[in-house]
Amino acid sequence: MSVKPLTIGELTARIPVIQGGMGVGVSLSGLAGAVAAQGGIGIISTAQIGFREPDYHKNPHEANLRAVRQEIIRAKELAQGGIVGVNIMVATQNYEDYVRTAIEAGADLIISGAGLPVTLPDIAAGASSQGRSHSVKLAPIVSSLKSANVIFKYWMKKYDYLPDMVVIEGPLAGGHLGFTKEQLQDIPGMHYEEEVERILKAVKAYGAEQGKEIPVVMAGGIYTGEEAAYWISRGLQGVQMATRFVTTEECDAHPAFKQTYIDAGEEDIVLVKSPVGMPGRAIRNAFLERAEKGPIPHGRCFGCIKTCKPADTPYCITEALIRAVEGDVENGLLFCGSNACRSDKIEKVEDILGEVADALK
């Protein structure tokens, strides 16, 4: 096997690795710009991205959109011509505003999940018509053949457009997950590799019908170069890695956040029910133990997720994620992937991408 670039239309990443988007504040311009500069694809998470803005508590929406612009511009400066994209959750309140702002700021790629991004091509077309020199690439995240079929058929019927790339996110991923808790408790029983093969076959068929090359990328549970090489040997064009990049010098999270990953054992990684109604994976700490005993009082609503009901939520997920990324790791929510317990040191982005490149030679 040799290192084959990941090509998305006119975009080409020398190393077929996408650094997964991690919010709140874990993957901002520092991490995304570094990954892009080293030949991968750097991704900024837009989830409550403006939490460091001085007016965030008064005007969270305006602060978030301002930060989207600033972080994309900074990442592009660091990227030295590399590819910088954003991850925008469909479940985000005012989703359309984030898509438009990211495109106007110069994002090369939009990856979108946590719901079906059925309107993404329409929003992007409107934003791209406002003076962009090239069209942004659009990549839905899917976890099943059913969701892939829905997106492909809807986009073609409504917009005469096929995705530029597809990200398959499996059950070993971090953050909010597109599976039931029961499925996540019996991952071997899911036979998920068979589902990956079905999705890959379907994407190839859709692309062939329209004469379009659509790369497919695997995400979830990929930590080493060898694991990346395995999926690429199965016919995928690249991989998305997130957890591995948390414990890097370039990651935007607080050093205490990174150290929690290094200190975590396998028994510390647990499934949790997010206040927004989706299962997720996190590192057990004092905060989760308190949450199990009853609701944790919270302040104002920051308008993060459409499905959240502030009056009924057991805790504010925005407050919890911000506390964690700023270093208060015992009083915050530490989302992670299934492999967080494998972290044992602080690394450099360059070395991780080099490991993947070596495994593909």
Rank of each mutant, 00 (worst) to 15 (best):
M1F: 03
S2P: 02
S2Y: 11
K4M: 07
T7K: 15
I8A: 02
A13W: 05
I15M: 11
P16S: 10
V17Y: 08
M22C: 05
M22A: 12
G25N: 04
V26P: 02
G30Q: 13
L31G: 07
A34N: 05
G42F: 02
T46Q: 04
F51V: 07
E53S: 13
K58S: 12
A63N: 06
A67F: 07
R69G: 06
E71N: 13
Q80H: 15
G85Y: 01
N87L: 06
N87H: 12
I88G: 01
I88Y: 03
Y98M: 03
V99H: 05
V99D: 01
T101R: 13
G106A: 00
D108E: 11
L109H: 06
I111D: 00
G115W: 11
G115S: 03
L116F: 02
S128E: 13
S129Q: 12
S129N: 10
S133H: 13
P140H: 10
I141Y: 06
K146E: 14
A148P: 00
N149P: 01
V150L: 15
M156F: 02
L172Y: 14
L172R: 11
H176P: 01
K181S: 13
E182W: 03
H191L: 14
V203R: 08
A208F: 00
E213D: 14
V216D: 10
M218D: 06
G221E: 13
E227R: 13
E227N: 07
I232W: 14
R234C: 11
L236S: 06
L236V: 15
L236P: 00
L236I: 13
Q237F: 05
Q237T: 03
Q237G: 07
G238R: 11
G238T: 09
Q240A: 08
M241H: 10
T243N: 04
R244N: 08
F245E: 00
T248N: 00
E250L: 10
P255H: 08
K258F: 03
Q259K: 14
T260M: 14
I262V: 14
D263Q: 15
E266M: 12
E267A: 15
I269P: 10
I269L: 12
V276K: 08
M278C: 04
N285V: 09
I296E: 02
I305E: 06
K306P: 00
K309P: 00
A311T: 12
D312I: 09
Y315C: 12
Y315R: 08
C316G: 12
C316Q: 08
D328W: 01
C336T: 13
D351G: 04
I352C: 07
E355T: 08
V356K: 04
D358P: 03
L360E: 07
K361L: 08
